[in-house]
C-alpha cells in the first residue's frame, strides 16, 4: 500500500488532491486512492468549458473491475484536462501528483478551499 501525502497540496475526504494557484485549482487523486484502485485502465474527462459545482461528478476513472466517480471539491469552470491520460491512463497510478493530474478548474469561489484538509489533517484519515 502506497500512501504518499505532499505538504504543498490540499485534500478531500474522498481522496482527491487540489493544488491551488491564484484563482485556479489542479485536481487529481491521491497516492492512496490510486493504490486502492490499482490498474487504472480508463479515464473519462470532462469537456473544457464545462461549469461544475462543488460535489458534481467531474470525471470517471475505471480499473479493470471497478468504475469510480471523481467529484469536484470546488466550484468553477473546467479550464484544462489532462488529455495525455486518454492514451495512458496508467499515468495516474505511476505519477498521481504530477503527470497523472486530472483537471484544472478556474475557481468561482476561492473560499471553498478553506474546507479542504491540509497534509497533516489528511494523513490522519489514512
Amino acid at each position: 500500500m502506497s500512501n504518499e501525502v505532499r505538504e504543498d497540496l490540499k485534500y478531500t475526504d474522498t481522496h482527491e488532491w487540489v493544488k491551488i494557484k491564484d484563482d485556479t485549482a489542479i485536481i487529481g487523486i491521491t497516492d492512496h486512492a490510486q493504490s486502492e484502485l490499482t490498474d487504472i485502465v480508463f479515464a473519462e474527462l470532462p469537456e473544457v468549458g464545462k461549469k461544475v459545482v462543488k460535489g458534481d461528478e467531474l470525471c470517471v476513472v475505471e480499473s479493470v473491475k471497478s468504475v469510480s466517480e471523481i467529484y469536484t471539491p470546488l466550484t468553477g469552470v473546467v479550464k484544462k484536462v489532462n488529455t495525455a491520460l486518454e492514451d495512458a491512463p496508467e499515468t495516474i497510478n505511476q505519477s498521481p501528483y504530477d503527470k497523472g493530474w486530472l483537471v484544472e478548474i478556474k475557481l468561482e469561489n476561492i473560499d471553498e478551499t478553506n474546507s479542504l484538509h491540509d497534509a497533516e489533517s489528511y494523513r490522519k484519515l489514512l
Binding site: T38, D39, V41, S63, V64, K65
Partner: peptide
C-alpha cells in the same frame, strides 16, 4: 480474494 497484487498482473 478479489486480487492479491493486481488484476492485470495476475491475469
Amino acid at each position: 480474494p478479489l486480487q492479491f497484487s493486481s488484476i492485470k498482473e495476475e491475469h
